[in-house]
Amino acid sequence: MLRVDDLRSCYGRIEALHGVSLEVKAGEIVTLVGGNGAGKTTLLRAISGVQPVTGGAIRFKGEVIDRIDAHRRVGLGIAQVPEGRQVFAPLTVEDNLRLGAWSRKDDGIAADLDGVYASFPVLAEKRALQAGGLSGGQQQMLAIGRALMAKPELILLDEPSMGLAPILVEQIFEAILALKARGITVLLVEQNAFSALSIADRGYVLETGTITLSGEGRALLDDPKVRGAYLGL
């Protein structure tokens, strides 16, 4: 579904991605792990179209998209859940969700809204409240729900467990597995390497803008380098 070939991206004169290549097959959960500053968020932003690329290619379902505007990539079926949730705090929960469907022209928005509420009942309870008043975990559910309203085939998740209590982290990873069960493909960036690789079909390790390891999720969990650098084992 997604193929990234020799991708390069810069901030001014500083190159953040040094020829990154990876692929995500339809229906997979693929996890990208790495330390702070490794380039994980830059890569997701490049895929979604909000970070310019200086070399290489991004293909979605066989189509080269690295020169396509970000809003058109949403229409093609790519949605990103950004780091830090970035909900629209003054707006209600329901208005946040409806904004996720801004690119759609079909008649299924109401049904999909009900589907998000079924997946995250707490959002239904708080639909009329301002999003800024939700807890961190509830805001993360809202951010995922907002992405779902775009009817994506591929969801890019950037640090969904950041800052959450352990019980909420478990709920978020259950929600990610539920996305896969619905046939949605997931590219997951996550510092909680153990949980992320445990649910991943495959994974990549990104270090200072370069892919250094790749393999099945469980195999990477057993890799001595991954265990030492990211699992504290």
Rank of each mutant, 00 (worst) to 15 (best):
L154S: 10
V169R: 01
M149L: 13
V169M: 03
L164R: 08
E153Q: 15
P166E: 08
P160Y: 12
A178D: 14
M149R: 06
L156F: 14
M149E: 06
I167L: 14
F173Y: 13
K151A: 15
I155N: 06
P166R: 13
L142W: 07
I176W: 03
R146K: 14
A178T: 06
E170D: 15
M149C: 13
P152N: 01
A165G: 11
D158C: 11
E174G: 06
A143D: 03
Q139D: 00
L156Y: 08
L179S: 01
I167W: 00
A165M: 12
L164E: 01
P166D: 04
P160N: 10
L156D: 06
I167A: 14
E159M: 08
V169I: 15
I144T: 02
A150Y: 12
L177K: 13
I144G: 05
A175N: 05
A165F: 11
P160D: 06
M141I: 02
A165D: 07
P166N: 11
G145C: 06
L154Y: 09
L154W: 07
Q139M: 08
L177Y: 01
P166G: 12
A175L: 07
M162A: 15
V169A: 01
I176Q: 00
Q171V: 07
M149W: 11
I155E: 06
G145M: 09
L177V: 05
E174N: 14
P152I: 13
L177C: 12
I155C: 10
Q140V: 12
I167M: 14
E159G: 05
A178M: 10
M162F: 15
K151F: 07
L164K: 06
E159T: 09
I167Q: 10
V169Q: 00
I155S: 04
E159H: 05
P160M: 08
A178W: 01
L168Q: 07
Q171S: 08
Q171I: 04
M141C: 06
S161W: 03
E153P: 07
L179P: 00
Q171C: 01
E153W: 10
D158H: 02
F173P: 03
I144N: 03
I144K: 02
I172D: 01
A143Q: 01
P152E: 08
E170F: 04
A143M: 05
P166S: 11
L142F: 12
I144Y: 05
I167R: 05
I167N: 12
L148N: 06
L142T: 08
S161Y: 10
R146V: 07
A143C: 08
R146N: 11
P166A: 12
L157G: 10
